[in-house]
Simulated scan of single mutants.
Amino acid sequence: MRLAVDGASKITTLLLLIISFALQHSVVFAYPGLSVLGPGPKPASTISETRVGGDGQPFQLQQLPQPSAYIGDLPVSKKCVFILATGRSGSTSLMDALNQIPNYLVRGEHWRAVGNMYDAYRRFQDALMAAERHSLRFDGGNVDSVYSIKQVYDTKLATQAGKDLGLFNEFGSDRVLQATRAYYASLYGYYGEDVVSGFKEIRYVCGKFLPAARKCGLQFQSFMGFLQSLCTDVKLIFNSRNTALTVTNLKLYLMDQSNLRDPLDFALDLGATHTLYDYYVRKNPSHAFRVYMEDMFDPQKNATLARDLLTFLGEDPKTPIAFDRMPPWNTGKSS
């Protein structure tokens, strides 16, 4: 049955359709796990590609969900968990326990890849500190459109700055932080805002990625601050044995023999790492948690540890997780 609609009704209906479409698409985009912070930025393109399979038929690769949130046009992961461990202390079993939580995806060793991000971040900051002492800057450069910036450039800088125009530079350290967050989100946090991403790594200890014992503290604090800045909500878990004695950590020492480390240096570096772990957790209980290997595998303690760990992470303390899914060490498959 057809409906007779006069001209005014047609216009009204069209306007209602336009308003309805605008309301539906002004903030929420058709990408799983995507939310928006700020004035409606455009989402990044999804990853899709057509390939030809073994049977000669074309097929479409699955599109990847976008990162969890956006600052301006750059993605930032919502919640992250980083496990920093001393090695041979059950860190893989700890990682596996977290991955038993349905929405957690914590990766294993990445051979200090995030350390490389930290090094790049520091180099950018150093370069910007030097540049900002000589650059021609103006307020609003980080939020104005390119047309507004060009207007300032054309009407004020180009006509008044003269020979100093080559020092024009309207971005600063906040852009470096946003780019670093986007870098992390692209590598680890691309499954959506409901997925908690992270990694576990045994290389962020004194004498390896960090300086030796006597100079370790300052860079340790700096690196922790960097990790805290990668996501909007960061939890740090420090894992080791309950003592830094070399005899207790003999497996770790023997593993390091490929580097021909002096036993005394090993003991000093490991002791300094334990001290920094303990101190940081005491000072930052809201986002740092300490896990000792012995408690993970003690039947009288591991249930309490699991509940405390889940509570620290903001998860239901009744969520079933276990530390013993990994094969025993005598199989050579646990670290």
Rank of each mutant, 00 (worst) to 15 (best):
N239E: 11
V196R: 01
V281R: 05
K200A: 13
L227T: 08
A213S: 11
Y253C: 01
F209H: 13
V196C: 05
L252T: 11
Q300G: 01
V291F: 02
M224F: 07
H274L: 09
T248C: 09
N239Y: 08
E201Q: 12
N284Y: 10
D278F: 10
R290P: 06
K283E: 15
Y277E: 07
A244R: 00
K283T: 12
N284V: 08
C231I: 03
K251W: 04
A267C: 02
K200V: 10
V195T: 13
I237L: 10
P263L: 04
T275I: 01
R290E: 04
K208N: 15
L268M: 10
D233K: 11
D269H: 02
M224I: 13
Y277N: 06
P285T: 06
K200L: 03
R241C: 11
F220Q: 08
Y292T: 05
F226G: 09
N284A: 05
R282P: 00
T273Q: 04
M296T: 01
V234C: 12
T273I: 00
Q219I: 11
Y253R: 04
P211N: 07
M293H: 15
V205M: 07
D298W: 01
L268N: 10
Q219A: 09
F226C: 07
M293Q: 15
Y253I: 08
L250S: 09
L227P: 05
F297L: 11
D262F: 00
T243R: 05
G207H: 03
G271K: 09
K215I: 00
D262M: 00
D295F: 09
Y277C: 06
E193V: 09
L264K: 13
Q221I: 02
S197D: 14
R214I: 11
T243K: 05
Q219H: 12
R282M: 11
K208D: 15
T275A: 15
L254F: 07
F238Y: 14
F238D: 04
G207C: 05
P285S: 03
Y280E: 09
G225V: 01
D233E: 12
N249S: 05
A272V: 01
A272N: 03
I202H: 13
F223W: 08
H274V: 01
M296K: 02
T243L: 07
G225C: 00
E294M: 06
C206I: 01
G271L: 03
F266D: 04
R290T: 09
M255F: 14
N259C: 09
Y277G: 08
E193L: 13
F220S: 07
M293V: 06
P211F: 03
L230K: 06
P299D: 08
Q221A: 12
M293I: 01
A244S: 14
L218K: 15
N259K: 14
